[in-house]
């Protein structure tokens, strides 16, 4: 079948079947990264522009490596060093990039809504690398891939997402995706960091982490952003770590085979301790490795690839 989407903007745009296809295909792309010669000619002659208007190490590098392993040419532009800092509006910047005829634009942006607007206005593919606190679809897909790889299924899993749900695009995309795939999602946060209307998301919501730990197949820790402190969303990091941090005590409470995830970058000592981040339950580095495979899949599908159906 033909992949029906030019763009990857939001998990809420994808069906369960489409998510399943992405996860299936990512396995074959993952194999490429384990070869000695890690390159296939699939996207030769295609140009991928990475527009990053927000600091990023992992996502940007992951997209760049993914594109290069498929033989696409990549150009990368960040906010500092671009005319964004000179006051050019994002859409002007985008039209200028478009005039140079890229085949795909990957955009990371501090405010919600721009990737959707670009997708509507531009003929090329647009992949959302995270917009404001709206969505981060590629992160959710790599998280689901990692869970599927570990458990062999998503259906019936219980996944806890812990921390700053309110300002997290990762949490939003994961809730929408995991629910579509039949998993149960539990959101854990102090009331100040739960978004208004969260009860309509179809996830369980609680302010207490300890009772959730033994029930969860996976616990996904979200990064605590320092600026939330000055905005008075919680008291201090010490108290946060006690109530909402992953530590040795909680690692030991987890059920057999349960895993710990983190989208990165981590604040060690705040939302996660060294033992938890580096221990046997952690699949944090698998997430990073799988990110490349999932992004290879999405680049391939968005630029006209077809989906293998057995």
């Amino acid at each position: 079948m033909n992949w029906p989407h030019k763009d990857v903007i939001a998990i809420s745009d994808l069906t369960a079947g489409e998510i399943g296809h992405v996860l299936d295909m990512a396995s074959s792309f993952k194999e490429i990264s384990r070869r000695d010669i890690k390159k296939v000619p699939t996207l030769r002659g295609k140009t991928v522009v990475l527009l990053f208007y927000e600091p990023s190490t992992r996502t940007r590098l992951s997209f760049e490596i993914a594109a290069k392993r498929l033989s696409a040419d990549t150009v990368s532009l960040s906010a500092s060093g671009s005319s964004f800092s000179k006051g050019e509006t994002i859409m002007d910047a985008v039209y200028n990039v478009m005039a140079m005829a890229p085949d795909c634009i990957v955009i990371r942006y501090p405010y919600a809504g721009i990737p959707a607007k670009m997708a509507e206005l531009l003929p090329c593919s647009v992949i959302n690398g995270g917009d404001g606190f709206h969505e981060h679809p590629t992160q959710a897909l790599l998280d689901m891939y990692s869970l599927h790889e570990h458990f062999g299924r998503l259906q019936g899993l219980t996944v806890a997402i812990v921390g700053d749900i309110m300002h997290s695009r990762v949490a939003r995309s994961n809730v929408y995706g995991l629910k579509k795939m039949g998993a149960t999602v539990v959101l854990v946060a102090p009331k100040t960091l739960l978004p208004p209307g969260v009860e309509t998301w179809g996830a369980q919501v609680t302010t207490e982490l300890d009772p959730v730990i033994p029930e969860a197949d996976a616990v996904m820790m979200l990064r605590v952003q320092k600026e939330r402190l000055s905005e008075r969303f919680f008291s201090d990091e010490r108290e946060y770590a006690v109530f909402y941090g992953m530590n040795k005590r909680r690692v030991d409470m987890m059920k057999d085979g349960a895993v710990i995830m983190h989208p990165g970058p981590m604040n060690r000592g705040v939302e996660i301790t060294y033992d938890a981040a580096d221990g046997a339950r952690s699949i944090i580095l698998d997430q990073v490795e799988n990110g490349v495979a999932v992004r290879m899949t999405l680049l391939y599908l968005s630029m006209g690839g077809t989906v293998n159906v057995d």
Partner: peptide, 21 residues
């Protein structure tokens, strides 16, 4: 609603926009 730009509620959370209660 310090940085709010739309009505606060389920929709603002979904759209990733800060709410004005």
């Amino acid at each position: 609603g310090v940085s709010g730009v739309m009505n606060e509620g389920g929709l603002s959370s979904r759209l990733g926009l800060a709410g004005i209660p």
